[in-house]
Amino acid sequence: MEDLFTSAVLVGIFWATLRIATPLLLAALGELVCESSGILNLSLEGTMTMGAFAGFYVANETGSILAGLVAAGVGGAFLSLIMALMTVTAKVNQVVAGLALNILGLGLAFFWYRSIYEAEGSIDIPTVETMQAPFEFFPIPWLTILAFVMVPVVWVFLYRTKYGLELRSVGHNPEACDMRGVGIISRQYVAVVFGGVMAGLAGSFLSLGSTGLFFPDIISGRGWIALAIVIFGNWRATWVLVGSLLFGFLEATQLALQASDVDLPYQLLLALPFVLTIVALVFNRSRSNVPLSLTIPYHRGER
């Protein structure tokens, strides 16, 4: 037991928590803004894969991580723009559109990857240099720092600015906004695309921020976890942060457990965040902050 509580292991868990939380936090914050406008974007997994691929490809071509990050944002924006077209303009069922785009994102990323990087047997797989930590004593890539900086930014935007208030109003009561002359379509477009950019960056963390590799399955369910974190966080930025850190901490701890002599089944810790999400969902039911018009397309003049 004592080898779990050495300072090296505890410090390791701390930094690992922040790193593991990074893609979850970025994607969940973007999804929070998106859902606040009344649009549920279920295509996070596909959007993150697209971001991971676009970032990897451009970084591999140009040798610049910054260019890779820009590409990841553009990749995410591209997919979410299709989402916005389908749900805001065409008013397609958001759940169906999200799931369909998910498949499109995963498929396109893999198709492009294979078109560019032909593999034949055990070749040396392509890799990129990963993001460096900005300071020696701070062993986390700066995309992690950006993710945490985005928490107060999103919070201030949503709860302390006029635009945030308008966006949340669109998500709660689009009829009232329409009557007040607050444009719904433009706000929803911006929110959905913002969510896409954040998801793209989140995906690129996995390819550029940590592993330096790209595989079509590299997101491995993190998009779905980010969606769960928004629900767990009851659509509030601070609780989204708590949820991301909780997921990161439990994952880091179970990995540390497996590296120690403690005989606790690690599967228990793997399951815990999901159990907590369901518990949070049940207990928050009476005071849910869910945007009231989430998933409901707005048709002007229809009651």
Binding site: V9, G12, S210, T211, F215, I218, S220, E251, Q258
Partner: peptide, 19 residues
């Protein structure tokens, strides 16, 4: 607990190195 998740494999190795 995955065939294709290099990011988690990386964190697992980091935890082992810390140990």
């Amino acid at each position: 607990e995955s065939w294709f998740d290099p990011a988690t494999a990386q964190e697992a190795a980091a935890a082992q190195i810390a140990a």
